[in-house]
């Protein structure tokens, strides 16, 4: 179920990327897209009844059922890279606002399309 929800989240993100003309909204849409993708990747590794993939004094044996640690490790990478792209995108947005006094792509381009 949650896999389909995350795909819907991804589609919402792509919709925002294509429709929105405000830079901040585009960055937010990019983040929604990314969150959907991350949830999807983590959900691929879910095992029902599995415990978190950490050996502790309670779950002290590798023979127990664990959820898949590999997608979680990949999502860790993806979150950090998402943070980097978001920071860079926001910096560019601030520069654009300083230069044009507007965050709207239509106003900046001076065009009038729908």
């Amino acid at each position: 179920m949650i896999q389909y929800v995350s795909i819907v989240l991804m589609l919402i993100g792509i919709y925002g990327l294509l429709i929105d003309r405000n830079i901040i909204k585009i960055i937010v849409a990019l983040n929604i897209f990314e969150v959907g993708l991350n949830i999807f990747i983590v959900s691929v590794g879910f095992v029902s009844g599995g415990v978190a993939p950490i050996l502790t004094s309670v779950n002290s044996n590798s023979a127990l059922i664990y959820v898949d640690p590999l997608p979680q490790a990949l999502v860790l990478t993806s979150i950090v890279i998402g943070l980097g792209t978001t920071a860079l995108a926001l910096a560019i947005a601030r520069k654009m606002y300083n230069a044009y006094n507007s965050l709207d792509l239509d106003e900046i381009g001076g065009m009038d399309n729908d």
């Binding site: 950090v80 890279i81 943070l83 980097g84 792209t85 920071a87 860079l88 910096a91 560019i92 601030r94 520069k95």
Partner: peptide
């Protein structure tokens, strides 16, 4: 990647 993005932010701002 994180280093490059922080470098980019530093270059821009």
């Amino acid at each position: 990647v994180l280093f490059i993005s922080s470098l980019g932010v530093a270059l821009l701002l």
